[in-house]
């Protein structure tokens, strides 16, 4: 009996029709994407960036903690000793090669949490489409921020001098308010200026 009732319930059909008809005249929540862009939440998980200190040294010390924390095995780090004449990072070691396969990455942010020096962070950039798979392996040339884009005072380089209270990225991001947007990361801030006037 129940079957029959559902099939021939004309009232329900008419009610459904009236609802869809009403929907026709409602305001559409669509954002016209390429011409109008949404400002993401400041903690949005997008493409990574490798940060620097204010003096231009790389934050990454090549410890491979991010690589082992990554659930998707997306990160490859090959560390190397800093040469005394040409110090790349404040510590003893730096990342000679640092690659993230963004096709494997699930944008979980575990690398960000694992990193002791807040070197790797996720920016709100998400438009990474490309034509070849190979181009989704991001190396330091695309991950590292430019030398002038450093943040935070470099740590004291005396032995044992790297302080534990550099301030976590999560905190920095959560204190940025949505209106000012992406300040927590260098590329995020760049993105914000790029999108001035396009938000809606």
């Amino acid at each position: 009996m129940a079957e029959g009732k559902q099939l021939y319930n004309v009232g329900a059909i008419l009610r459904g029709l009236s609802i869809t008809f009403g929907f026709m005249f409602k305001k559409k929540p669509t954002i016209q994407y390429p011409s109008v862009r949404k400002q993401h939440a400041p903690r949005f998980h997008g493409l990574h960036e490798l940060r620097r200190y204010e003096d231009g040294k790389e934050r990454c010390i090549g410890c491979e903690l991010c690589s082992s924390a990554c659930p998707a095995n997306a990160i490859t780090v090959i560390g190397a000793e800093n040469a005394p004449a040409d110090r790349r990072s404040p510590g003893e070691r730096y990342a000679a090669r640092y690659e993230i396969d963004e096709l494997r990455c699930i944008f979980c942010g575990m690398c960000e949490e694992a990193c002791p020096t807040d070197a790797i962070v996720l920016t709100p950039r998400f438009e990474m489409s490309d034509f070849r798979r190979g181009s989704f392996v991001y190396a330091k040339d695309r991950l590292l921020v430019p030398p002038q884009g450093g943040t935070g005072a470099p740590p004291d380089e005396r032995p044992g001098g790297i302080p534990a209270d550099l301030g976590s990225v999560a905190e920095m991001k959560s204190t940025t308010d949505p209106a000012t947007g992406y300040d927590a990361t260098y590329y995020g801030a760049a993105l914000k200026t790029e999108r001035k006037g396009l938000t809606g």
Binding site: T20, F23, M24, F25, K26, K28, P29, T30
Partner: peptide
């Protein structure tokens, strides 16, 4: 169909 599904 788009309008009825709140799309443009």
């Amino acid at each position: 169909m788009g309008w009825m599904q709140l799309r443009p």
